[in-house]
Design a protein around this nucleic acid. Structure first.
Lengths: 186, 186
DNA sequence: GTCTATATTTAGATAGAC
DNA sequence: GTCTATCTAAATATAGAC
């Protein structure tokens, strides 16, 4: 495999679990097993690597949510599958941590890419809420965009609370509570 | 006012809005208007200051939530007031960002203090859910702990999504969606 | 594309005078 | 308690040979 890909793959994991600002180029080089010359040849600045990582992690997350929903018969079941995204919350959300990273927020290009990932995810969820209303599994009284935003926030917040307390059980309680609210309305 | 307090007050704002790991002691000194000698006299290590900041920001957040709820007649109204905590989400949650900060998570004492703040907040919300069930404003079918965890996660997630997209409207949509779910069950 | 050597700036302090 | 001087390591690169 080429070094560029090795660097990106290492950085995706490191920036995800350890943060962008708090992970140095050197840590990425060591993890990827490439030298400094190679690293700076492919990525003249750290932000160039950050851009690729934010884009790919966003794309990967969207793909894994779609994959988790695939084949489920009702909209509500697909939303429940999305809530299951917080099933391993202690490692943090693939992109959620970037929202609190000063190094990401200070770079307009990175911030834009991050925002796009969240907007796409929110759009997907809104569509699934509508599908659930069409198939009768989600209450027609709910506003699709607001309900989608609430469910996305529950999952992102579940990651935050689980990491802050060190307890996965807080994430599980949050998503179970949200699912119960969704089910109680239908 | 004494320098120790000036340092803590500056650090509370800076760590809140800009992150703990991404704010240097020097930035704090300059903002507080104190010299290096004074800074390191009061806080031999940055983590000592971090400990005070996490504790105070957690305490302040709990106090402001209690204050926002004060005087409201029903549990559901008090929960709605809590959801309003994300009304100015672009600056980030006073403690939520610490959950993704490698420098906080690497220090057991800081992590413990952070976890305690979230556990106390969750406990308060659970109590208010129970009060709402007692006064008839919240459905008795809901599990208090799980519902509280879901509401806490919605607010924390609203901060994350608002900051990631740069749009307050995403936070507002999330909390409105959550409130609608809560109201639809009662 | 990759290597090693070098450079600049900052983080995070420590030492000792006042 | 505060000041200034000093220090070490790391972050983030750049330069030029191979």
């Amino acid at each position: 495999m080429d070094n560029r890909r090795l660097i990106i793959d290492s950085a995706k994991e490191l920036f995800w679990h350890h943060g962008y600002s708090t992970t140095s180029p050197k840590q990425v080089m060591v993890d990827a097993g490439v030298g400094q010359g190679s690293f700076y040849h492919h990525f003249p600045a750290k932000a160039d690597l950050g851009q690729e990582v934010v884009r790919e992690n966003g794309r990967d997350l969207l793909a894994s949510v779609r994959s988790a929903m695939e084949g489920l018969p009702t909209g509500r079941q697909r939303l429940a599958a999305f809530l299951g995204s917080a099933g391993d919350a202690l490692g943090g959300c693939q992109i959620g941590g970037f929202a609190y990273d000063a190094g990401i927020l200070a770079e307009p290009a990175l911030r834009e890419t991050l925002g796009t990932a969240f907007v796409e995810l929110a759009g997907l969820l809104e569509q699934v809420v509508r599908e659930g209303q069409d198939d009768g599994s989600v209450s027609p009284k709910l506003d699709p965009a607001k309900t989608a935003a609430a469910l996305l926030a529950v999952v992102e917040g579940a990651f935050v609370v689980a990491r802050a307390t060190g307890r996965q059980s807080y994430a599980d309680a949050a998503t179970a509570g949200a699912l119960a609210l969704l089910e109680a309305t239908s």
